[in-house]
Simulated assay, not measured.
Amino acid sequence: MTAIPSALHRFGNVTVRLSVELGRAELPLKEVLSLSEGSVVSLNRLTDELLDVTANGRVIAQGEVIAQDGRFALRIVSLVGDDVPGPTTPDAASLPADASVGAVQS
């Protein structure tokens, strides 16, 4: 883990929401309504693609899913640089109804 500059220590207890999106799918409403247990929805990401890690909706890193102590976890592979603004992920409330299938939050 990288060292936090001393000027930022006072913000160390501020809570942010980290989210990881596995992928998205766009489906007609009739297909969404026909989903049931055992249904499979294909997402737009390949299994070997890195996942975007967002903090309060802003991409801060990319990582890969791992298993740790019987839980899903995320290994950070790369951090988004300060000089390159990362794309933002829209808040779930602002997404169209067909988006956000397969979102995972931690």
Rank of each mutant, 00 (worst) to 15 (best):
T47E: 11
A67P: 01
L29V: 13
T2D: 12
A61M: 06
D52C: 08
P85R: 00
F11I: 03
S100P: 03
P90F: 12
F11K: 11
V104C: 14
S106R: 04
D69C: 02
L33H: 03
L43M: 04
G102R: 01
E64T: 10
K30V: 07
A25D: 04
G12F: 04
V101K: 06
A55K: 04
L8D: 12
D69V: 01
E26M: 08
T47L: 12
V16E: 00
V80N: 02
F72Q: 02
L51W: 01
S19H: 03
G38A: 02
P96M: 06
A25K: 01
G81D: 11
G57T: 07
P5G: 02
A103R: 15
V14L: 14
S42I: 13
D91F: 03
M1T: 06
Q68T: 09
Q105I: 09
G81N: 06
L74V: 15
S6A: 11
S39G: 03
S42V: 12
L43Y: 01
F72W: 10
R10T: 06
E31V: 03
L8G: 00
L8R: 09
A7L: 10
I4S: 03
A55T: 05
V32P: 05
L95F: 04
R17Q: 13
A73C: 04
I4R: 10
L46P: 00
T88G: 06
G81F: 00
A93M: 08
T2V: 15
T2K: 09
N44R: 03
R24H: 03
D91K: 08
I76S: 01
S36A: 05
G38M: 07
R24C: 05
R58F: 05
A93E: 13
F72V: 10
V84W: 00
D83M: 12
S94D: 14
R10N: 01
I66W: 07
S100Q: 12
R10Q: 07
R58A: 13
P90H: 07
R10A: 13
D83Y: 10
V65E: 02
Q68N: 12
R24S: 07
V101M: 14
I60M: 12
A3D: 14
T47G: 06
D98T: 07
I76P: 02
L50E: 14
R75G: 03
V77C: 06
A103D: 10
T15P: 05
I60A: 07
R71P: 01
G38L: 05
G102F: 02
A103E: 14
G63A: 01
G102N: 02
V104Q: 11
L18A: 15
L33W: 05
P28V: 04
Q68W: 07
S34H: 03
V77H: 01
L22P: 00
E49C: 09
V80W: 00
L35P: 06
V101P: 04
S94K: 11
G63D: 00
H9L: 15
G12M: 08
L51C: 08
V101L: 15
E31I: 01
V40D: 00
V84L: 14
L18R: 08
L50W: 11
L33F: 05
T2F: 10
P28S: 01
L46Y: 04
A25H: 02
A97W: 12
G12K: 09
V16C: 13
I4L: 12
L43E: 09
E49K: 07
I66Q: 08
E64I: 10
D48L: 11
D48I: 12
T15I: 14
A92D: 14
E21C: 04
L51I: 09
V20P: 02
E31L: 07
E49F: 03
H9E: 10
P87G: 15
L79G: 01
